[in-house]
Structures are given as structure tokens and as C-alpha cells.
């Protein structure tokens, strides 16, 4: 109170903008971003991780050190020239020693450890793991953002219509949403993926988007149900605004917060599901996918788990970034948590 009074009593500060809303849009945006980083340091970390991932995906050709499909070879360390020479005379020697002792030509560096030439080592075919992880970020972002976008847009349309019209339409739409949610999710994805003979990345993205529509429609519906009874909606209807206009101009702007929150917090989940599908061998076989790389590392067995470990770390890192940013954004946008310093969330 005293503080507010002090501001009111301040001598006229003509020409000096007192409030943030007097300043240009760009300054305002910068100030808001600065505040976000200051009050939500973990959310800031998330945004930085997302930035890194997006940068790696867009400029993959510049960031990678090699082509992700290049196979690297090294001289065979087990090659024994003396033995090979003897074998030319006496072929039975070949049977007594392991075959790699006679292989003169260079062999691919299979599951090589980290080195200065290959920062994160090589995969099972001798390809540079760092470059493949960088290129894998494209797949992850494509599916994550694409599916979240499809789910949010269709979920918003479905949820808005369902809650606004109510009655029989609402009942009917909610039963369809129930149906989508009653399906075991992975089974629905498998069915979608199998309907087209070879699941491409886009098919998997659309399937994930359809699956996600159900839950985002639920969120939007409950938000609309709260807004629908507001006085300004009644006022708009009184002056004869059409249904479409009320939905788009009066209800939609008031439910953007939950929509943005569902969008950002679902991206990480979609990235995880795509990796799971690829891990099960149901992803797009032509794309570099982190899930498929973990599976490849797993097959290498317990003697050298490095590849499975490092690829999983990359996946965890990116999902963590999206989760942290999504949580911080929820704290900022969710009015129930406002004014508490956002301490309830994380």
C-alpha cells in the first residue's frame, strides 16, 4: 500500500514511461523474456536446451563433423602378415586361428569409443555417432513439434465445438474421445502404422497427433466450459454475434493459456513415444532415429554399452529441456499458481 502511494506521489515524470505497457512491443517482449529467465531459472535452462536442439536440427549440415552415413574404417589390428603368408602355402592354418587375423583390408570401426576423430565414438557400422545424434535431432523435433501441432489444433477445434454447443453434440464427441482414450495407445499407433505398408515419419506423426487430440480436446473443453458462462459471452450473444464469432473472438482468446501449456508440455512426450516406436522397430526405417540407435547399442551386448548410454543421454537431455520449459510456462500462465511466486510448481 505504502509503495503504491509512493509511486502515485512521485513528482511528474513527463515523457518517462512509467509502466511497461507504454513501451514498444519489442522492449516489452525482451523485458518479459528477461523476467522469465530470472524468476524461472530452470525454465531458462529448458529454453536453452530447446534452442540448442533446434539449432542442431536446422544447421545439422554445419554442426556435424562428418556425413551421418559415412562408414569409417581403420587398419585391422588383428591382421598378422606372417600367418597370412603361411596360410597361402598351407590352407589348414586358416582353420586354426580366428578369421580376422587373415583380413588384410581395412575394417569398419565397429562401436568405437570416443576419440578426437569421433567425439562420441562410432556405431555398429562404423558411422560417426556425434553426427548421427545431431541428425537424429531432426527426426525428434519433426515428430515432437508436428504431433503436438496436429493434436493441439484439432483438439482445440473439437473441444471448442463440443463444449460450446453442449447437448447431444457434446455427448457424441465425448464418447468418441472416450473411445480414443480407451484404446491402448501403443496398439492404436501400431494399427495406424500397419495400415500403410511402411510407416514413414509423417504417418507416425499424424497417428500420434490423432491420438493426442483426445487429451487436448479434454483440456480445451473444460477451459471452454468455464469461460462459456462469462458475462461478456452473454453480452456478445445479446447483440446478435454469430456462434462462430463468439467462439473465435470471445472464447478462444480467453483459453489460449491452457492451449499453450498443453502444446509445450506434450512435445517431450511425443518425442519419447516416437523413440519408443523406433526402439520396437516400428519407426521409419529410412530415418536416423535416437530410439533405433539405442536398440542398436543394446544389441551390441553388455560388454560395451557406451552407444546405448550416450544416445539415451541425448534423448533424455532434449526431453528434459522441453519438460522444464513446459513446467515453467505452466507456472507463468496458469492463473491458479499466479501470485504464489510459482513455488507450487517446479
Amino acid at each position: 500500500m505504502a509503495q503504491e502511494q509512493a509511486i502515485l506521489d512521485r513528482p511528474g515524470t513527463l515523457g518517462v514511461p512509467r509502466s511497461l505497457s507504454d513501451r514498444p512491443v519489442l522492449v516489452r517482449a525482451l523485458v518479459h523474456i528477461g523476467r522469465f529467465f530470472r524468476y524461472k531459472p530452470l525454465g531458462g535452462v529448458g529454453v536453452v536446451i530447446i534452442g540448442l536442439c533446434v539449432f542442431a536440427a536446422i544447421f545439422a549440415e554445419a554442426v556435424d563433423r562428418y556425413d551421418p552415413e559415412d562408414i569409417f574404417k581403420a587398419t585391422n589390428p588383428a591382421y598378422d602378415p606372417e600367418l597370412a603368408e603361411k596360410a597361402l602355402v598351407d590352407p589348414t592354418i586358416r582353420l586354426q586361428y580366428p578369421p580376422e587375423k587373415f583380413e588384410k583390408s581395412d575394417l569398419p570401426i565397429r562401436f568405437g569409443g570416443p576419440s578426437s576423430a569421433h567425439w562420441l565414438g562410432t556405431d555398429g557400422l562404423g558411422r560417426d555417432l556425434y553426427s548421427r545424434i545431431v541428425h537424429g535431432s531432426r527426426t525428434a523435433l519433426y515428430v515432437g513439434l508436428g504431433a503436438a501441432l496436429i493434436a493441439t489444433i484439432s483438439g482445440t477445434i473439437v473441444g471448442l465445438a463440443s463444449a460450446y454447443f453442449g447437448g447431444f453434440a457434446d455427448f457424441f464427441i465425448q464418447r468418441i474421445v472416450d473411445t480414443l482414450q480407451a484404446f491402448p495407445p501403443l496398439v492404436l499407433l501400431l494399427l495406424f502404422g500397419q495400415v500403410v505398408a511402411n510407416p514413414t515419419l509423417t504417418v507416425n506423426t499424424i497417428a500420434l497427433g490423432i491420438l493426442g487430440t483426445a487429451s487436448s480436446a479434454r483440456v480445451v473443453r473444460s477451459a471452454v466450459l468455464a469461460v462459456r458462462e462469462e458475462v461478456y459471452v452473454l453480452a456478445a450473444r445479446t447483440i446478435g454475434a454469430s456462434d462462430l464469432r463468439i467462439m473465435l473472438r470471445h472464447i478462444f482468446p480467453n483459453i489460449t493459456a491452457p492451449i499453450i501449456v498443453t502444446f509445450t508440455s506434450s512435445i517431450g512426450i511425443y518425442i519419447l513415444v516416437e523413440a519408443t516406436l523406433a526402439f520396437l522397430g516400428l519407426g521409419d526405417p529410412t530415418r536416423v532415429s535416437w530410439g533405433k540407435m539405442v536398440e542398436e547399442g543394446r544389441r551390441n551386448g553388455p560388454s560395451n554399452p557406451w552407444m546405448a548410454f550416450i544416445v539415451g543421454m541425448a534423448l533424455t537431455f532434449v526431453v528434459l529441456g522441453f519438460n522444464l520449459a513446459g513446467d515453467a510456462l505452466r507456472d507463468v500462465l496458469d492463473p491458479r499458481l499466479r501470485g504464489r511466486g510459482g513455488r507450487a510448481g517446479f
Binding site: 543394446r298 554399452p305 519438460n323
Partner: peptide, 18 residues
Amino acid sequence: ILVLAMPNFWIATMALLY
């Protein structure tokens, strides 16, 4: 928050391998 970000299949794979 770390457990939520780690893929299930990856933790299980690493646990099994180790």
C-alpha cells in the same frame, strides 16, 4: 523430473546391460 525425462526403454536397457 529426471526420471520423467528418461525414456523407459532406455533405463530398462541400461539396467539389463549392467
